[in-house]
Every structure is written in structure tokens, then in C-alpha cells.
């Protein structure tokens, strides 16, 4: 569906207010500071990225999976489903929706085991506890919580149009593309339409490459205040990321997040 963004479920249901987002997170913020929460999100975005690359998924599919992940936790506590289970489930669903094809849930659980063992051992010392049946069960819960909104608009296509308008700028395009990938670690995909994210990322890329495009930006028919907010969110991410020693910190952070209790609460008889 590459049709009208303004009529899409993405725009109508899944662009949310910052305050609402913070409010929905209160449960988790009892255990984590906002900064720590962001670090956890950075970690799982990385995890989804690595997992997706294992299955040779295109960036578009990985981005969609990451947005599913963020949408789920925008409305639910980290406690409701273990993010280590939700992450592969998002990949599982996104690869079907984006027509990559069906990845077997078995293989996916297997690659989780490998990825954790080989790349994220510092974060997760146990064996990966989930199997295909968990992913399949989780998928139904994910679909319900997404309210069947599966088509996600990404900033990549708008970026290509913008670059076309500027004139062939390969370096600028490559860098902005990467910044958009990085932006998946922030909340911007929940807060702003994708074309604005593309412009925000482009602005940062221009600063980094010292490209003078003030006139071009001035002629864009877009709410520049929003663009500044997006750019600020991404720059903040970079600063946080710089000071984030994932290998050292993440195990402690994951310990702190509220855990799912798989057994039904014991009721008095």
C-alpha cells in the first residue's frame, strides 16, 4: 500500500502525542529512568537489526518490524511480553506483510539462539528460552495489539524523492539513509509522519557534510518546528548513544525491566 498516507491507519491511529507516549510508559518508568528506557529501546532495535540481517532481510522489512515493536510497547509495558520474544515475532510478521516470504518460526527461534550466543552474550547469559510455538502464539497477540494496522510508511521512499529534487547527491543520500536507520532507535516513528522524519534526517546529514541547502529547506512546504523536533530527537540519541557502553550496561538494565510472569496469579481458594 503506497497510497495516501493521510488516509492510512499509520496516520490516523499510530501518530501519537509525546505526552500520551510518556503516560503509557509510566508503568515501566517505575523501574527505569527515561534514559535507561531509551537505552533498552536502542538495544532491541540493534537486536532486530542483527536478526533481520541474519535472514538477509531488506532494510524496509527490518524497519517495519522495528516499528511494530515500538508500537506494541507504546501501548503495553515491557512486562506484558518479553521483548526477546516480541522481537523475532515482529520480524516474523513483517516479513510476510512486506512480501519477503515466510521465514519459518523454527529457523527464527534458532537464529535467536545463535545471535544471542555469538553477538549478545554480554546481555543475555542464559540459553534462549523460546521456540516456534511461542513465536506463533505471540504473533496473534501482536496482530491484536497492532489492531491489524500492518502497513507502515517509512521515510526511505520520501528520502529518495527529496534527493531527486536536490539533484543527485550520493553521499548525502547514503548518510541520510543511515540516519533514518538510526532514528528507529528513537520515538520519532511514533510521533511524526515519515516524510518529516526524512527531512529531519536530511537536515542533520547536511550539517555533518557541511552542505548549504538553506534555500532548498526554506522552500519546502513543511512545518519546520516539527523538523527541528525530529532533528533534536536524533541528535539527542547520538549523544546518549555515544555515552552508552552497551556491553557494560545492558545486562544491568535488562535485569531492571519488569519481567513477564508466565504463570497465572495464584488466586485464593
Amino acid at each position: 500500500m503506497a497510497g495516501n498516507f493521510w488516509k492510512s491507519s499509520h496516520y490516523q491511529q499510530w501518530i501519537v502525542d509525546k505526552q500520551d507516549l510518556v503516560r503509557e510508559r509510566q508503568e515501566d518508568l517505575k523501574y527505569l529512568t527515561e534514559e535507561e528506557y531509551t537505552k533498552v529501546q536502542i538495544f532491541f532495535a540493534n537486536f532486530i537489526q542483527v536478526l533481520g540481517e541474519q535472514h538477509k532481510l531488506r532494510q524496509q522489512v527490518i524497519a517495519t518490524a522495528t516499528v511494530y515493536f515500538k508500537r506494541f510497547y507504546a501501548r503495553n509495558s515491557l512486562k506484558s511480553i518479553d521483548p526477546f520474544l516480541l522481537a523475532p515475532t515482529c520480524i516474523f510478521l513483517a516479513s510476510k506483510v512486506e512480501e519477503f516470504g515466510v521465514i519459518s518460526a523454527n529457523r527464527l527461534a534458532g537464529s535467536c539462539t545463535n545471535v544471542i550466543k555469538n553477538k549478545f552474550g554480554y546481555a543475555y547469559s542464559q540459553d534462549y528460552p523460546y521456540h516456534s510455538k511461542h513465536i506463533l502464539e505471540c504473533e496473534f497477540y501482536l496482530l491484536e495489539n497492532l489492531d491489524c494496522c500492518l502497513i507502515v510508511y517509512q521515510p526511505y521512499r520520501p528520502l529518495l524523492l527529496l534527493i531527486q529534487d536536490i539533484g543527485q547527491e550520493e553521499q548525502l543520500q547514503t548518510l541520510t539513509w543511515r540516519i533514518i536507520n538510526d532514528s528507529l532507535r528513537t520515538d520519532v516513528s511514533l510521533l511524526y509522519p515519515p516524510h518529516q522524519i526524512a527531512i529531519g534526517a536530511l537536515q542533520i546529514a547536511c550539517v555533518i557534510l557541511q552542505k548549504e541547502l538553506k534555500h532548498w529547506f526554506a522552500e519546502l512546504n513543511v512545518d519546520m518546528e516539527k523538523i527541528q523536533e525530529i532533528a533534536r530527537a536524533i541528535v539527542n540519541l547520538f549523544e546518549l548513544w555515544k555515552g552508552f557502553d552497551e556491553k557494560k550496561e545492558i545486562a544491568g538494565l535488562l535485569d531492571k525491566i519488569p519481567k513477564a510472569k508466565p504463570n497465572p496469579p495464584v488466586t485464593a481458594r
Binding site: I81, K261, P264
Partner: peptide
């Protein structure tokens, strides 16, 4: 998956 969450949904 959390039991209370499952029950709620």
C-alpha cells in the same frame, strides 16, 4: 508472556 496480560487481552 505475562499471564495477567494474557488474561486481560
Amino acid at each position: 508472556m505475562d499471564a495477567a496480560f494474557k488474561l486481560k487481552t
